[in-house]
Design a protein around this nucleic acid. Structure first.
Lengths: 277, 277
DNA sequence: GTACGGCGATACCCGGCGGGTATCGCCGGG
DNA sequence: CCCGGCGATACCCGCCGGGTATCGCCGTAC
């Protein structure tokens, strides 16, 4: 199976319409129809059900859509990582606005190593670092457990800290010495922000949809929401936002993560610098 | 990047010789040279170093070899799983000679379910079940923790048991009531069997290289080796092999494993039958 | 009932690309 | 110095992937 055929099939399976899929692929409809028919012949099974109502996926078609997407991602990651390996320097992905001091220290420590290469810092929206790593567009990322998933990645723990609630300065709870998680749940005047899922979509709910730290900070200052974040975010707080410790919130661990089996020399040096070894 | 190009590159990278790689691919050498050159041009980086001493991989080349193999496996798995989805029935992979009673009970329980489909049982050599699953050639497998890796698979625990040492009946230790692991280590007359690694190769050592249960059983009966296996293997023992409990050996858990996100209806029914729910 | 429009399949044509053979250029060894 | 091994280059061909035109089938609207 060639990747071109897979791309064709995925396009048709997503559009469920040969004409639109062909348009998306920048080609005419007939060769697309033929390519899919050939693919079905070679696989020995129908992938799509064509009837007068339109196009639908068969069982094997659903399987190939899921597996084919994964395979295409693997091919794209292979290509991206090879391209990256051909260029000097490292790309480090980090959540914008999180662990800023730790990141600065890490970069300084690595920069002092002999033979350090330039590090490009890619600041990400929530949850995007893992995608950049998995897609091969970054060499290493700062992730925060338990929020980010490290499945399929190698990791090194850097730092563990408690969390604080960030509240609008004018809110009654902002005067408290401490808060419990339960007190912050279901506040009618401060609906919880909706963080993106790994696929980029947002869950439903009353709170604002959040993509990055700046949005969140500003919405808290405006009194529209509140959040529970690692203590280290205190360093970035502006006026209008008050931190209150939340002792029963889970501890947050900041980890360096990288794709397995990809310890290049610069990456190994970065890890050494990060762990102080 | 097309899978054909990846296959070409992997062949050359493995052979480090254009002529042999072309032969392996069933084509002539010139088009292979051109294909690799085109790939390098498109990726914007050299993958192979050609000099008078021969061909060597560059850094990016090593990256593409590793990542490209993974991508090719993903494509092959997508194809195999799609083919499998087009055929009726389930394929269950199990280690030959292990958990036989549990497997029989599982098949009986599933067979009694309404709408059960035929189950083809693929009996494997040691460690092969995981490969069959990952390659898409089986739908579900019986694995044994901590021996088999379940990384990247969904699992359901079925059974946990202790282990027994299997010794030649004539061996002095066979008369013992119990044994400790330390007593079985480094016996000069019974060198430990060498089980295959996940890639199929065998570690070095004095003991016999083992591929399946029958080999192992027979070599024990011949007094050439000994082994520590889950208690349930007692049911398969023939003459010449004596089981002795080893209380300090790790517990073995038998699990059903399947590729994530692949719960087809028959697979779901099998899991239901397996867990007695 | 008929005419029309939307959609996928088919028919047919063409150009480029993938693959083949012949040969070159380079280098190292006998 | 010649030869042999190996990868690159030159050049040619056939096929396959893609394009246009058109068909066949339905569902719908009047």
């Amino acid at each position: 199976m060639e990747t071109r055929e897979l791309r064709y099939f995925v396009a048709v399976a997503e559009e469920l319409h040969f004409g639109r899929a062909a348009q998306r692929l920048g080609m005419a409809q007939p060769p697309l129809s033929r390519a899919i028919a050939r693919l079905e012949r070679r696989l020995g099974t129908a992938l799509l059900e064509r009837d007068s109502h339109g196009v639908a996926l068969t069982g094997p078609g659903r399987v190939l859509l899921r597996e084919g997407r994964a395979a295409l991602e693997a091919v794209a990651a292979a290509e991206a990582r090879t391209r990256r390996a051909g260029q000097p320097g490292l790309v480090l992905a980090a959540k914008a606005g999180a662990s800023a001091d730790l990141l600065a220290g890490l970069l300084a420590a690595y920069g002092a190593e002999p033979g350090a290469v330039p590090v490009e810092v890619q600041l990400c929206q929530y949850g995007e670092q893992g995608q950049l790593l998995r897609r091969g567009e970054a060499d290493v990322a700062l992730l925060h457990l338990p929020f980010d998933s490290t499945a399929g990645l190698d990791t090194e723990e850097l730092h563990t800290e408690g969390q604080v609630a960030l509240l609008p300065a004018a809110h009654p709870l902002a005067a408290r010495r401490e808060l419990r998680l339960a007190e912050l749940a279901d506040l009618p005047d401060l609906p919880a922000p909706r963080y993106p899922r790994p696929d980029g979509s947002h869950p439903d709910g009353p709170g604002p949809a959040i993509r990055d730290h700046t949005q969140l900070h500003q919405l808290i200052a405006l009194g529209r929401t509140c959040a529970v974040l690692p203590e280290s975010c205190r360093a970035q707080l502006g006026p209008g936002v008050t931190p209150v410790p939340v002792p029963d919130a889970p501890q947050v661990t900041t980890v360096l993560a990288w794709p397995p089996d990809s310890r290049s020399r610069p990456l190994a040096a970065l890890l050494r610098a990060a762990t102080g070894g």
